[in-house]
Design a protein around this nucleic acid. Structure first.
Length: 446
RNA sequence: CGGGCUAUAGCGCAGUCUGGUAGCGCGUUCGUCUGGGGGACGAGAGGUCGCAGGUUCAAGUCCUGCUAGCCCGACCA
């Protein structure tokens, strides 16, 4: 993409309403604009990152054997009356009346709807296990939306639901989600620590939340520093293998890690003192096993081999996709702007033309640009007629992890400059070598 | 939902106390010079001062009501 033909309205100054880094930077980098309290438009740059995260979530869900679908944002109130949550959910649920006077609502989550779909289509144990998920906009009418997309009213969430005949099978689904979520966050360049959680209004017995450590996090967390060293890495996982998933679950949940909601002073004090850590964290996902809570309420049962009807065991699992962008920026920025992890960057590399209009420099930039595109990469070429400082400042702000700087001085020696946004380290090399280097960096990361 | 604050050009702000031609910086448009970290000079464009009433010869400024947004607390992907 050529910047001169893109839509990237960057702001030089901090908007007054933005208090935390991710909110400020998303506004300044032209990713979002507020439409009303807690509701945002996603401008091209923000939309691009959102789609990248969605893709990662999809890939990892499918890898774990879960099946994508799509449910509507608007739901009928009837189902929610049936589960009893129409009253329980309170004012956070946006209620709407259609022209016929029917009560509708903008879905804050989808347990009822998915269970309804399930009960109407599945009657036999033979069709289980089954895990369905979708990525859809949700609406929760927060009393006080804040921090940009971190606590919006409208937000994009991946929510999934598993249906199993037995508790054991459902707990395997729980573990499978634990593993696939860990992988998902790692691919995004995030460390999200699973912590024992409250089950909240969704209810149930087992729940873990995934927290990204950040000073601006809304939750207070306590953990054993040993969890920081845990990495799933690129190990091959067989998601159908119960023991393997259980082992990974144990590995990641054995060290003490809890939020203030479930914090247990005695257990925490059992951790060696030098490893006891407390910090703040951003919640970027949560998994639940809630047994037959919804299948009982909504009468979702399957027939077993011996002819009995049994309510299915269920769980639900969510990742706040739009919130993740905020969390990634909170964890990856400096005073100049964002620093995207390579797995989620909106463009792979920026090209800065230091002397727009100079025929040799323009030609070198074009060569780089086309060479990178030919390698399957997406460069962002700043071809505006701006001075070097302005271009550098824009690039730093939007945070592409790599920058190629092209100017007459370097070209005189036959080189361009490749700079790492995070470290600031630069290296000079020929155009061909630069194309090759950048492609190498992104092997396995696009 | 309790407490505090704000609303003036695309963004950041002054002007309101003490009513009298709506301003500054950045951005933006045109031109010239410039060209390796937000450059210089010159000339422009851009505002029903959040909305509705009221007081007054006259309201951005005073009064009343409303709306929207932000911050702190109680709640949540």
């Amino acid at each position: 993409m050529r910047l001169s033909q893109y839509f990237l309205p960057v702001l030089k100054e901090n908007p007054a309403e933005a208090q935390i880094a991710s909110h400020r930077l998303m506004l300044r980098a032209g990713m979002i604009r507020q439409s009303s309290a807690g509701i945002y438009s996603w401008l091209p740059m923000g939309f691009k990152v959102l789609r990248k995260l969605e893709n990662i979530v999809h890939e990892e869900q499918v890898r774990a054997g879960h099946i994508p679908m799509l449910m509507p944002t608007l739901q009928s109130a009837d189902l929610w009356r049936e589960s009893g949550r129409y009253e329980d959910y309170g004012k956070e649920m946006l209620r709407i009346t259609d022209r016929h006077g029917r009560d509708m609502l903008y879905g804050p989550t989808n347990e009822e709807l998915i269970t309804d779909i399930f009960r109407n289509a599945v009657g036999s144990y033979k069709e289980l296990p089954l895990t369905l998920y979708h990525i859809q906009w949700k609406f929760r009418d927060e009393v006080r939306p804040r921090f940009g997309v971190m606590r919006g009213r409208e937000f994009l969430m991946k929510d999934g639901y598993n249906f199993d005949v037995t508790k054991e099978a459902a707990l395997h689904a729980y573990n499978r989600h634990m593993v696939s979520y860990l992988r998902t966050y790692e691919r995004m360049g995030l460390q999200a620590i699973p912590m024992r959680a409250d089950t909240g209004p969704i209810g149930g017995d087992y729940s873990h939340e995934f927290l990204v450590l950040a000073e601006t996090g809304e939750s207070e967390v306590f953990y054993d520093r040993a969890v920081i060293d845990l990495k799933l890495g690129d190990r091959e996982v067989d998601f159908s293998n119960v023991d393997e998933c259980q082992d990974i679950f144990d590995e990641f949940t054995n060290p003490y890690a809890r939020t203030d909601e479930t914090h247990d002073e005695a257990a925490y004090n059992a951790v060696p003192e030098e490893r006891r850590m407390s910090a703040r964290g951003i919640e970027v996902g949560q998994i639940f096993y809630f047994g037959t809570k919804y299948s009982d309420a909504l009468n979702a049962a399957v027939q077993t081999p011996d002819g009995k009807q049994v309510p299915v065991h269920m769980g639900s699992h969510g990742i706040g996709v739009s919130r993740l962008i905020g969390a990634i920026i909170e964890a990856n920025h400096d005073d100049k702007g964002i620093i995207w992890p390579e797995g989620v960057t909106p463009f792979h590399v920026g090209i800065v033309n230091l002397k727009q209009g100079d025929s040799a420099t323009d030609a070198a930039c074009d060569q780089l640009y086309h060479g990178l595109v030919a390698q399957g990469l997406e460069p962002l070429y700043d071809d505006r007629d701006e001075r070097a400082g302005t271009k550098f400042a824009s690039m730093d702000l939007i945070g592409l992890p790599w920058r190629l700087t092209v100017g007459p001085r370097g070209l005189g020696n036959g080189v361009v400059e490749l700079t790492n946004r995070r470290t600031g380290d630069s290296e000079e090399m020929s155009i061909e070598a630069a194309i090759d280097r950048v492609s190498q960096i992104y092997v396995g990361k696009t």
